[in-house]
Design a protein around this nucleic acid. Structure first.
Length: 424
RNA sequence: GCCGAGGUGGUGUAGCGGUCAACAUCGGGGACUGUGGAUCCCCUGACCCGGGUUCGAAUCCCGGCCUCGGCCCCA
């Protein structure tokens, strides 16, 4: 039997790095005042088909249960969290700040950094339409990247509202905009030209769209955008919002970002400010404002902003970059000098474990020689050698596995002695 | 869904029509029943699956599966 395509078995550094990412995120989310939620692994299929276009529906693991209900393994977590909000959290004080971790499933061809089961985390602010909320979510992303020690990360901030407004003015509305947005996101000029012509967009708007989508750099690009958009009131409002968010980011201590007005992505439900986080050219997080999604899923109109993180991808980036991941090692192994000492070893191990130490005993009936070799292979810091000779005077031998130095230690002082050296 | 490169012990490789399928490493044991990272010896363990060609296939051909990477897509 082998594992299903696109899944992974994890252990060792791979698992440690995932755990570390989860741990750090968990701490930061709570530090920022978010509350954890958990939703089921499967939902009604309809929840996802409502939110996402038909193109992605065939990538959902969908099935009928024994009563014929159409269910789906969740392909993402925003829709389930919004569903949870609509079902039970609507009457909590606004804004609601929620975070979550969860496995998601997509039926896709596995490739670099892409699996059929993957771990996502995210945070959402539901109920605030203000730029403070946008800025806080972006600050959260920056904090995660910083605290995980990711080097050379690239945080890009844009606003899909600008591009969509230009398209609307040019007569391209609703879903018609999506293929155009995709072409922009892919930086595919030929494709963009084609999509715009297909929809009869005039030269003037084509030029404007390309000019705006090409803007990236520091805050100064907003001035250029403002010149270009002088006639478009709503687009200028979007620009003002972006400016406000960037100003707030400064107060939050975020400075390493780039403005990129070409961010469009296939994220069709984003309405305003959007952002993406890249590490080594791989996108590891993305989010933005989605003021219409909650209504789409059957709620009262309600503004919201959020972010999703690709936990596995971030963990892989950390391994790649050699970020230090501390791993709790075995404090000691308790080894009998001969078979008769086994009972005594078990008692000593019991006491040391109760004292909070990480302790192992040999379960193979090995000779002392082999057992010490095994302790070395396990990278135990100490070996406690229990023999009749020392035990006669109530002592055991404590061997430092790194230096090879040994000393006789009274049994009852063993735990304290080990805890002392554990701290160093 | 498409394209490319691959699949031999747990890992890394050799073998490329006839070999007891080799080597290294890892794992278990012994030399050495109160002392590890050395040496020597022994043991466990593999040709992805199914067809075909052939007297004979790990080796050649076809199909599938899987892995890695790229495209499409990425809510």
């Amino acid at each position: 039997m082998r594992r299903p395509r696109g899944t992974r078995d994890l252990f060792g550094p791979e698992l440690e790095s995932v755990r570390k990412v989860m741990h750090v995120m968990n701490e930061i989310f709570k530090r920022y005042g978010y509350v954890e939620v958990e939703t089921p692994t499967f939902e009604h299929l309809e929840l996802f088909t409502k939110k996402s276009g038909a193109s992605v529906v065939n990538q959902i693991y969908a099935f009928q249960d024994k009563s014929g209900r159409w269910l789906a393994l969740r392909p993402e977590l925003t829709a389930p969290v919004v569903r949870f909000y609509l079902e039970r959290l609507k009457s909590f004080p606004k804004p609601l700040k929620l975070f979550y971790f969860g496995n998601c499933f997509r039926y896709e061809e596995p490739q670099a950094g892409r699996y059929r089961q993957f771990l996502q985390s995210g945070a959402e602010i539901i109920g605030s339409s203000r730029p403070e909320a946008d800025a806080e979510v972006i600050a959260l992303v920056d904090e995660v990247a910083k605290e995980l020690g990711l080097r050379g990360y690239d945080l890009r901030i844009g606003n899909v509202g600008l591009l969509r407004e230009i398209l609307s003015r040019a007569g391209v509305k609703g879903e018609e905009q999506d293929p155009v947005m995709r072409a922009i996101d892919a930086h595919d000029q030929a494709k963009l030209e084609e999509e715009l012509d297909k929809r009869g967009v005039g030269e003037e708007y084509k030029k404007l769209l390309k000019a705006v989508a090409g803007l990236r750099g520091g805050v100064e690009v907003l001035d250029k955008a403002e010149e270009l958009l002088s006639d478009l009131t709503k687009a200028r409002a979007a620009l003002r919002r972006l400016r406000a968010v960037l100003r707030l980011l400064e107060l939050c201590g975020v400075d390493g970002y780039r403005v990129d007005l070409g961010i469009a992505r296939g994220l069709e439900y984003y309405t305003d400010v959007v952002f993406e986080l890249y590490v080594d050219g791989v996108q590891v997080a993305g989010g933005g404002r989605y003021d219409e999604l909650i209504e789409l899923l059957g709620g009262e109109p309600c503004p919201a902003v959020g972010v999703g993180f690709g936990v596995d991808r971030i963990a892989q980036a950390m391994l790649r970059q050699g970020v230090e991941i501390e791993e709790r090692q075995l404090d000691c192994m308790v080894l009998p000098s001969s078979g008769e000492m086994l009972d005594e070893c078990l008692k000593i191990a019991r006491d040391l474990r109760r004292a909070g130490l990480s302790v192992d005993v040999d379960l193979m009936g090995r000779s002392l020689r082999k057992a010490i070799a095994y302790a070395d292979a396990r990278r135990a810091r100490y070996a406690v050698i229990v023999g009749a000779r020392d035990l006669a005077s109530g002592k055991v031998t404590l061997r430092n596995m790194t230096t090879g130095e040994q000393e006789l230690v009274p049994r009852e002082e063993l735990a304290n002695k080990l805890k002392e050296v554990q701290a160093t």
